[in-house]
Amino acid sequence: MAAGERSTRDAFGQALLELADIDEELVVVDGDVGSSTRVSRFAGRFPDRFFSVGMAEQDMILTAAGLALCGLNVYVSSFASFLVGRGYEQIRSAVAIPSLPVKIVGSHCGVTVGEDGASHQMLEDLALMRVFPNMTVLVPADYASALSLVKKSSEMASPVYIRLGRAPSPDIYGDGDDGFVPGGGRVLREGADVTVCCCGIMVFEALRAADILARQNISAEVIDCYSVSPLPAQQILESVHRTGCCVAAEEHFARGGLGEAVASLVSGAYPVPVKQVAVFDRFGQSGSPAELQEYYGLTASQIVSAAVQVWTMRRR
């Protein structure tokens, strides 16, 4: 695959293959969507370590939890709508409360799922997973960061949720970049006037927005908050100390996602205006990914607009 034609789900499939070679205890639980979640190559190479339980997301989670109880390194993946939507209560009682190191991988997140429409466009997975006290929530922006974060998750002894997209995403990081850690963030652009916290597909949009803002003499600091929980709190606070205002952009409902996490952090430690670029009070619908991104305002121009607004309200 050429750069720019790769999705985060492709990275997940590749990471599993690489991990499986060095970790004999790595197993995968699938719910009959292995081709879509990119675990089918793993299934072909390691059939003894691959378990499909059919279209049964609740049972997927319990099976994964049982495997983890015996010390195995378990990845369970399906479409996020159904995996964390239908499987929520199983995740809560069988993974989160006992703090089992099950790695839950939700693919097909956000409106960029496209034509399938609202039922398949998961926009509340971060909200559902972020509330758990011991769940690490990771949202890679591109292939390289997804590859790195999936590998990092493998070393974790507590529950992890990883959010993946369906559509190819533009490359942000160079191949082989391994500088990603749970709880971390990456300052992609340094700036003095406005902080832009973002994750997933909105990282690319934020970088474009920063270019546009620069032409208006507003220098934006762009932080890829790929670790939505725990947040890269020090990086965010250090940035808003300098800029005095913040935009948070994500392909998720405004309720419960990165934006609210950032607003909560900032309001408690160093209050500055925070404006969200996200999906407000409505579900997704059918359309092409590009049309939907535009329709729901998940674009660089919306980030620019929000940045200008918070900048006028900035803390001086």
Binding site: D59, T63, A65, G66, L67, L69
Partner: peptide
């Protein structure tokens, strides 16, 4: 479901 996972492991 948990018992099944344990059994498979």
């Amino acid at each position: 479901g948990l018992a099944n996972g344990i059994s498979l492991a």
